[in-house]
Design a protein around this nucleic acid. Structure first.
Length: 108
DNA sequence: ATTCTGACGTGGG
DNA sequence: CCCCACGCCAGAA
């Protein structure tokens, strides 16, 4: 907790994402003060593969597209996890993304 | 040390 | 909405 490491910060925010909600890499990056470095958030997620506490499936790009589903175990594991939470996903695209979007800057 | 890549975002056309 | 180019920074080769 309260780690100064960039990765740890990303994990913290990711863990705060409510059930059935999603956010974007840029939103997290901005919240961490690293706006523009959204890629690093994705990198942190990649390293978070071990950390099951980090719901990486709830983090997508700004279009609501499951760009990182390819990095999960299966091919549609990410989509399954989201649908399991009530999130409708069609062709890697989250439906009603604007409604399900969870902004850490605004919510926290 | 240098080069490339990458789970992104923004701006311009 | 789509497509293209640039920026961004950490890690791997």
């Amino acid at each position: 907790m309260s780690e100064t490491g960039f990765f740890e910060k990303v994990y913290e925010v990711a863990r705060l994402i409510p059930y059935g909600r999603v956010t974007s890499y840029g939103a997290i990056a901005k919240y961490l003060g690293a706006a523009g470095s959204a890629r690093m958030v994705g990198w942190a997620m990649n390293a978070s593969g071990n950390k099951e506490d980090v719901p990486a499936h709830r983090v997508v790009n700004r279009k609501g597209l499951l760009t990182g589903k390819h990095h999960f175990d299966g091919t549609n594991l990410m989509q399954q996890l989201l649908e399991s939470e009530g999130v409708e996903v069609i062709e890697n695209q989250i439906q009603d993304f604007d409604k399900l979007f969870w902004d850490p800057m605004k919510e926290l």
